[in-house]
Nucleic acid binder design. Structure first.
Lengths: 248, 248
DNA sequence: ACAGATCAGTGTAAGGCACGAACAGTTTTC
DNA sequence: GAAAACTGTTCGTGCCTTACACTGATCTGT
């Protein structure tokens, strides 16, 4: 089921994700479960124990099966992780499609990214090694391209915008998640208490001032901070659209 | 040497990084090496085998020592990783200080981030779980704040800009690094070959068009692509500065 | 000067991980 | 009915982090 020779050399798991495996040979006993079930169980483990706590035995345990049984469905853990990331981000948001213009669409898209990342924080820990090639992730890109269509930008420019907002959403979500974690919050404030006296003396006056003032606010990431960077990027894109328009 | 009770509750490795360990009790035999030497060796291992290939035994081997000996200097691997990241990014770039205005400074800062990330690609794989608290990383922030001083923005705004450019630099560097890796490049083009026929039929027309056109360019990340997002962000910041100025 | 506290590095072991290979049982096809 | 294909299990390899007991070297107070 797994060792399809036609697609060797593919990045792991892609063929699986698109459901084009060679469902020809149906000879042995019926599989006890499916790749979808495995991914589902993996999501549960990641939700419960984070990306670092994800292991094949733990996934298998949820399916009532030995760890090695999973390798009948999947070539490697890395392959599973690709599918896991796809499941974690999930399908692209519908709200983008309903936006009236590119700016609203991009705003919704970015907010949705952040929301999804916070719903499954471990997606931020999944290393990104390739362009999006799984269905949902391609869906997010398609969704973005659709929303940006009326901006009148070229493909290269639009793709650049996607990279820009994607990176921003990940940064913000990562920061917000760190702040939300109670353990980290305590540790961070302890670190601040330790650092603040040092910073001024060691040649970091601006950082010292900044952290002093921030120390009182850092309970939670205010919505304003999320919107800040987003608006900067969108303003920058708007400027670009103006330039491209007059260039023509 | 390591078990300083005054700083318990601190995120791992911070006290070490700032060199404020309690160098009082000097009783036993002299240490064969130092935390700096360990970090140095760790950098070598990471350069050679990547972040995933980093392990305590391998680091210790370079120092002619058993793996467990390192735990006399360091509490956990995670602690070492914090110091490793600090060493990987290195000191903030001097070029920012010489920039004449905030825009040039921010440009230099971001380019330097990307350059450093490409010099030690494993820094991108180090999970970011706290605000910058190690000397070099704080240095980068200080350096940015200094460069942005003449923009006249408030602390909150300036910090937002830093987050913005930091996220962008990491995104771009990550993408560039992926493309540079020969193995990945081959795999990605194989994936494209597999995906392109599918995309159109499955409801991703825009992505299909995009990837078709991109397929010929994707050899390397052109410098233009790097500058693109940077200029969008800077334009957006410029707009903000204008707004804040008239608000006053 | 010497005794004891203290700290360095080693050895060993426990527990966990990804993964490979041989195996036994089940279901389909010829 | 036999052979082939496919299933999950078991056992084994080689990694890894971390805990803990232990041997020696070295410094401090007396």
């Amino acid at each position: 089921m797994v060792d399809d020779k036609r697609h060797t050399g593919l990045p792991p798991g892609i063929a699986l994700a698109w459901g084009v495996m060679p469902s020809a040979g149906r000879r042995g006993p019926k599989p006890a479960f499916s790749v979808e079930r495995i991914v589902e169980a993996a999501v549960e483990v990641a939700d419960a124990e984070g990306f670092a706590g994800l292991s094949m035995p733990k996934i298998a345990e949820r399916l009532g099966v030995t760890g090695n049984a999973l390798y009948r469905y999947i070539r490697s853990k890395e392959e599973l992780v690709v599918l896991l990331a796809d499941a974690g981000w999930g399908p692209p948001p519908e709200s983008v499609r309903q936006a009236g213009n590119w700016r609203d669409a991009a705003t919704e898209w970015t907010r949705a990214m952040i929301a999804r990342a916070l719903a499954h924080p471990w997606v931020l820990d999944v290393p990104v090694h390739t362009a999006p090639v799984t269905p949902h992730l391609v869906g997010w890109l398609e969704c973005f391209l659709e929303g940006m269509a009326d901006a009148g930008l070229g493909e290269q420019d639009t793709l650049g915008c996607a990279l820009l907002l994607d990176g921003y959403a990940r940064s913000v979500a990562n920061l917000a998640h760190s702040l939300n974690q109670s353990g980290r919050a305590k540790a961070t404030s302890a670190a601040l208490e330790f650092l603040l006296p040092l910073l001024g003396d060691r040649g970091y006056p601006r950082t010292a001032a900044l952290m002093t003032n921030m120390a009182y606010i850092e309970d939670d990431l205010p919505q304003g901070d999320v919107e800040f960077g987003l608006n900067r990027i969108l303003d920058g894109i708007e400027t670009l659209i103006g330039e491209r328009g007059t260039e023509h």
